[in-house]
Amino acid sequence: MVAAALAEAITHPAAGAALDIDNVNHAFDIDGAELPVLSDVSISVEPGEFVALLGPSGCGKSTLLRLVAGLDKPKAGTLREDESRIRSPQPSRVVVFQDPTLFPWRSVWDNVALGLEAQGILKSQRQRVDAALDLVGLSAFRNAYPHQLSGGMAQRVALARALVNDPKILILDEPLGKLDSLTRITMQAELVALWQRKGFTTLLVTHDAEEALVLANRVIVFSERPARVKADIRVDRPYPRHRGDPYLADLRRQILGLLGLDATW
């Protein structure tokens, strides 16, 4: 049954959605003063694209992701998923955060089942949970509690919890940022494989230029806060990509230059 569900998921991938970010401005109110974080950000993402958002730490990338997720509303401008305005969170746009934020009182299986349970469709769709756990290779840990998992395993569970909803847009907020470098490299490859298999649109926030170049079709570089789009770079290389690829190394040098870090290169 698991295999059948998995096969179905592979043969009928949930197609990605288009994302339109149109002249978005956003600011935080801090003690009455307005702190601008996003300034006239416009990005148009094709269905199924893998877009990396790169910028200095604290520039407002994560804020943009919260707007795309529908967790916050922009002060000005509009965001659209397939022509429909984003006003509130939807399971078609799922976020994987930097911390796995698994619910410690739920077993791995129950954590992955969270979305289906919240939408009231768990009873008829239990096999989707099994399939998602299979997808990230953690079926053996279905009854474990989060405190028993390693950092990489916890982040895989968080990924399964997102994927079980068949999202049209997968929003990744530095999901690999806290993992050790070996686990990070493994999970980068897994992410690409999942994205190619499922076809969802992916938005990845990172401040690792190499990670952005290994994973994404397109790298968008932001300025310091308030974030503006500084450069929009297409990465036309086939997957799997090699870290030592001179083409990528060249792009990396350009990007670091844009971020004002060319002296360290």
Binding site: G70, L71, P89, P91, T101
Partner: peptide
């Protein structure tokens, strides 16, 4: 309760009662 838990649940389609 950490807001992160609510954020996760909301993006997964949770209603207030949930």
């Amino acid at each position: 309760v950490s807001n992160a838990y609510y954020d996760v649940a909301r993006t997964l389609g949770a209603k207030p009662s949930f």
